[in-house]
Each structure stands twice: as structure tokens, then as C-alpha cells.
């Protein structure tokens, strides 16, 4: 177990070999007037340094709530974490003191949000907001902080950083603002970045620029990256491994190539099939029937069963565990898991 003191830089040299972040059996619920909303129901995932994990899911799948729990920015109440562990470098963040937690947040784990405009303070120049990271966490003086801010803006390739350091957020375009958010997340050289739909609000051509930048910086700093998104295209472009979430559970995990080639869960398969393909022109698109579940009343058994083409009686009665996925001859497929009783059949038809 590391101590508070070695939370600083030197900790990197320590022979800690496990994953950077290990989320174990995380549960998050919201207590609302209408009842308890179980937003996350036993999520497990881990990210190592230099690795990109994509968490894929629709609205209400719990993908963002999980990230907010990791980040420690859930409003509690109404949120509560009744169960689970959030191991960062082997230490459970849920058991840490507020002060320790705060030190990790921002310095060790940083987050990038979808909406850069509302995440930046509109009345302060961006340079000041970037520099504040250094002033607050590193005790830099004003001048150094400003120099650092320019350096950061350069690093995220904002043209004419020196001249623009005094500009306000609204003077930047959407793509540039998202770059500033990235710069801010990078400022303290965190070990892990959580990007929550970082490009959803951006235009396609700008999206590509920002995603490229993020991937490049990640490689440069050897950071872990959790990319939360609903976009199968973005995932295919940058992820190493994928966790697909549905109704607060992970339904499938797989390395990126395998997930697209041979999905082992009917939901993943449905998502992949509903992407319009060239040869389907003029035909009906494959559509997953029904609606995403109401988290107040998650269906019994497998949450996907009412929409699943493969559902059997057992799916309505038992919650399928995230089972290891293997080849027919029993050779395990590394990193693959599926929470479906019929993963074998699904894998075959894929």
C-alpha cells in the first residue's frame, strides 16, 4: 500500500504493476421521489497506463455515471454508492479521506467533458484558467503560470497561443475550446484521463482533429484513457478495448478488433447491425426493437431480454454473469467476456 506521501511524482518509479484504475463491482443508485434509480449495477473494468478503454453505451446506460463516480464528482445525495471498490494504483478511492481524494482528482485523474463552453468560466481569460492549475496545485507564481499556460496551448496546437492566452472562452471556436479543455486536463500530467463524449458536440472535420490530438498526447504521456461515447465510429478509431454497457451493467468486453468482427452479445450485435451499410441501400435498416429500459424498473433477468431476438425463458429469470468467452475448442479469448447465456451462439452467427 502506498502512502499519501508517495502520491507525488516519484510514485511512478514504484514497482506497482497492476492496472492504473480498477473498478470492481461498482453500484451507484439515485434516490429520487419516484423511487430508487439503479444507474450502475455491478460494473467491473480496468485501465492500464497507455491503454484506451472505450465505454460504449446509450443514454441511461450508466456509462457517464460510472465515470463520475470514479472522478468523485457525483452529488451525494441523491447519488449513493452502496457497494464496490474504485482502486487507483491499488488503493480504494472510496475509503480515502476527502483530502486524499481531492489530491487525486485533477492531479492524477482528469476529466474532459462534452460541453467545453459550459465547463470553462466565461468571465476569466483561458490563459488564467489554465495557469490556475499550476497556481493552485503547484504553487507557481503568476508569471510562471502564464508561461506554462502558453506552453500548454501550444502543445494542444492552438495557433498563436501567445497572443490568444488572454482571450476569453467565447472568443474560441468549439474545437479550440475542446482543445483548451484537453490542455487543462493535461496540465498536471495526470496518469488517467476520462473523456466523456469529448467530440459529440463537435463537427465531423473538427472531431477528427480533436480525437487525433487526444490519442497522440495519450501516447506521448503514456496515460490511461477512458473514452465514454455512444459513437461506434469514434470507438473503432482509437480504442484498444471496449466495454459495452446496457442498463447499468457491462454486457460485453472485448479487444476492439474482435468486438467489431465477432460480437458475443446480442445487444452489441444489434448496435453494429443498425449502422447503415452500403449494400443495404434502399432496404430496411436493422433496428433493435423496443426502447431502452426505464432504470426505475429494470426488467427482471437480463435487462436486454425484452428487446433481444435470442431471449429464452432463462433470460427472464436469471441475470447472466459476465462469462469468459472462448473458442469452440475451449481456447480462451483474452480479454473477452459476455453477459449473455447464449454468447456461444451469438459469437457463431456474427
Amino acid at each position: 500500500m502506498s502512502t499519501v506521501a508517495d502520491q507525488g511524482r516519484p510514485a511512478r518509479e514504484e514497482p506497482y504493476t497492476g492496472p492504473l484504475l480498477d473498478v470492481r463491482n461498482l453500484h451507484v443508485e439515485f434516490r429520487t421521489r419516484d423511487g430508487v434509480v439503479r444507474a450502475v449495477n455491478g460494473v467491473n473494468y480496468s485501465v492500464s497506463a497507455g491503454e484506451t478503454l472505450a465505454v460504449l453505451g446509450e443514454s441511461g446506460s450508466g456509462k457517464s455515471v460510472t465515470a463520475q463516480a470514479v472522478m468523485g464528482i457525483l452529488d451525494m445525495p441523491p447519488a449513493a454508492i452502496p457497494e464496490g471498490e474504485l482502486l487507483f494504483r491499488g488503493r480504494d478511492m472510496l475509503k480515502m479521506s476527502k483530502e486524499e481524494r481531492r489530491k487525486i482528482r485533477g492531479q492524477k485523474i482528469a476529466m474532459i467533458f462534452q460541453d467545453a463552453l459550459s465547463s470553462l468560466n466565461p468571465v476569466l481569460p483561458v490563459g488564467f484558467q489554465l495557469g490556475e492549475m499550476y497556481r493552485a496545485h503547484r504553487g507557481s507564481n503568476r508569471k510562471d503560470a502564464k508561461a506554462k499556460a502558453v506552453e500548454l496551448m501550444d502543445r494542444v496546437r492552438i495557433p498563436a497561443a501567445k497572443e490568444r492566452v488572454g482571450d476569453y472562452p467565447h472568443q474560441f471556436s468549439g474545437g479550440m475550446r475542446q482543445r483548451i479543455m484537453i490542455a487543462m486536463a493535461l496540465a498536471l500530467e495526470p496518469d488517467l484521463i476520462i473523456a466523456d463524449e469529448p467530440t459529440t458536440a463537435l463537427d465531423v472535420t473538427v472531431q477528427a482533429q480533436v480525437m487525433d490530438l487526444l490519442a497522440e498526447l495519450q501516447a506521448e504521456y503514456h496515460m490511461g484513457l477512458i473514452l465514454i461515447t455512444h459513437d461506434l465510429g469514434v470507438v473503432a478509431d482509437v480504442a484498444d478495448k471496449i466495454a459495452v454497457m446496457y442498463a447499468g451493467r457491462i454486457v460485453e468486453t472485448a479487444p476492439v478488433h474482435e468486438l467489431y468482427a465477432r460480437p458475443a452479445h446480442p445487444y452489441t450485435r444489434g448496435l453494429l447491425d443498425s449502422i447503415p451499410r452500403l449494400d443495404q441501400k434502399g432496404q430496411e435498416l436493422y433496428a433493435i426493437k423496443g426502447l431502452p429500459p426505464n432504470l426505475l424498473r429494470i426488467p427482471a433477468g437480463c435487462a436486454f431480454n425484452p428487446r433481444c431476438p435470442r431471449a429464452q425463458e432463462i433470460c427472464r429469470q436469471k441475470v447472466p454473469p459476465l462469462a469468459e468467452v472462448t473458442e469452440d475448442d475451449g481456447t480462451p479469448l483474452a480479454g473477452r467476456g459476455s453477459a449473455c447465456f447464449f454468447w456461444k451462439e451469438t459469437l457463431h452467427d456474427g
Binding site: 471556436s173 474545437g175 479550440m176 463537427d203 465531423v204 472535420t205 473538427v206 472531431q207 477528427a208 482533429q209 480525437m211 487525433d212 459513437d231 461506434l232 465510429g233 469514434v234 470507438v235 473503432a236 478509431d237 480504442a239 476492439v256 478488433h257 467489431y260 468482427a261 453494429l272 449502422i275
Partner: peptide, 25 residues
């Protein structure tokens, strides 16, 4: 525009020939 669209196919990752536009609209 077409080259920037993320393709839901990881095998295309390496072979992609993306035109990255500079500047803003």
C-alpha cells in the same frame, strides 16, 4: 468531410487516408 467520418471498423484504422482540415469555418 467524407474522409473525416469515423468508420465503425477498426481494421480501417491503419489504412485510412484522412484529410485533416486546418483552421476553422
Amino acid at each position: 468531410l467524407l474522409s473525416a467520418v469515423p468508420v465503425p471498423d477498426p481494421t480501417a484504422r491503419e489504412s485510412r487516408d484522412r484529410i485533416v482540415l486546418t483552421g476553422d469555418v
